[in-house]
């Protein structure tokens, strides 16, 4: 990538000479070499105000005691106190374990269903265009509505799923979902799967269409089977899409507590508590902004570590 200004600039600079000096400044801005930067200024101001400044002040806040419900306390500097507290915080250990399950099981299950759906849709039979659109809809729905749709279907007395499952004898009547600590997280993961598998489908389908069909024709001449073709052509050709989509989905899973917030609120007990949810609730329910900021910094390190390791391991380097 070159840092030189494009040749299109020359025409403007030549015309510059005929202008008077007063309008020269404006002319240089609009037609000269600063034009590209000028266009970026509004976005840079906005991003500095709503991203850069908050991130820095958030990290700064994590070294302070700041409780919203106790304004008399002020905002004293306490150094690494919050980070020391984290070491003995039992909830963090549960939340880290749950986050690991949430992200791993969530991304793998969504990946698999997303891939199967994309491979099926790629056969482009009649009606598959509209099917692809329908499949994408859950992904576009607000999590509040999605979660409550499932809560309605999984209601212990009135839910349609309990009705069906108890009729065929799989489930006893009145089974209450999301209440068993050892399965609640996986039950929410089913809702999460429904909501977000189509994200992978979207990317994989577009990736599949981008593979030239000659590749497949050549390999079918060689007499290789369907599985071999999938392994030798589809997967390697899809690799950049796979890496990109997986990173985005893992970040999404890690960062979004809304489905959990609506369905379980982290309960029963702390059985479905994750780092993102814990950070949010520390601020929203306990008003302990300093500790919540420290938890966010921990989350930031987790995400950075994952991205670096994953990009290195997959061998795909971006641009």
């Amino acid at each position: 990538m070159s840092d030189t200004v494009t040749t299109r600039e020359t025409a403007a600079t030549v015309r510059d000479d005929s202008q008077s000096t007063s309008s020269n400044v404006i002319y240089a801005l609009i037609e000269g070499k600063y034009w590209a930067y000028l266009l970026l200024i509004p976005s840079l101001i906005l991003v500095t105000a709503v991203v850069v400044y908050p991130v820095i002040s958030g990290i700064w806040l994590s070294f302070h005691e700041y409780r919203l419900n106790r304004p008399a306390l002020g905002r004293p500097w306490i150094g690494l106190e919050h980070y020391r507290d984290m070491l003995s915080d039992k909830t963090i250990r549960i939340a880290l374990k749950n986050t690991l399950i949430w992200v791993t099981v969530g991304s793998i299950s969504q990946f698999i269903l997303g891939m199967i759906t994309a491979l099926a849709l790629h056969r482009s039979l009649k009606g598959f265009r509209i099917a692809a659109v329908l499949v994408l809809i859950p992904w576009l729905l607000p999590s509040v509505v999605s979660a409550n749709m499932w809560r309605l279907m999984l209601d212990s007395r009135l839910g349609v799923i309990n009705e069906l499952l108890s009729r065929i004898g799989v489930l006893e009547r009145g089974h209450a979902w999301f209440t068993n600590p050892s399965t609640a997280l996986y039950e929410v993961l089913v809702v999460e799967l429904w909501k977000n598998f189509a994200f992978f489908t979207l990317f994989f389908l577009a990736g599949l269409y981008a593979i030239p069909s000659e590749y497949y024709e050549a390999s079918s001449v060689d007499g290789s089977g369907t599985f071999q073709r999938f392994r030798d052509i589809t997967i390697p050709m899809l690799m950049p899409v796979i890496v990109g989509a997986t990173i985005l989905r893992v970040i999404g899973l890690f960062n979004s507590p809304d489905i959990l917030l609506v369905l379980t609120g982290g309960g029963p007990g702390n059985a479905t508590q994750t780092i993102a949810l814990y950070g949010f609730q520390t601020a929203y329910l306990r008003f302990d902004f300093g500790y919540a900021a420290a938890l966010s910094v921990l989350a930031l390190f987790c995400l950075m570590a994952f991205t670096v390791v994953y990009v290195r391991a997959s061998g795909v380097t971006k641009e």
Binding site: V47, V50, V51, Y53, P54, V55, S57, G58, I59, L61, L248, I251, F254, N255, S256, A276, G279, F280, A283, F289, A292, A293, L295, S296, V297, A299, L300, L303, M304, T307, K318, E319
Partner: peptide
């Protein structure tokens, strides 16, 4: 461009809490 991509990686609470104060 990479910076605009990395912004998605920030934990939302890291932004949300300072934005609340701001």
């Amino acid at each position: 461009m990479i910076f605009y991509l990395v912004i998605r990686m920030f934990p939302f609470t890291l932004l949300l809490i300072p934005l609340f104060i701001m």
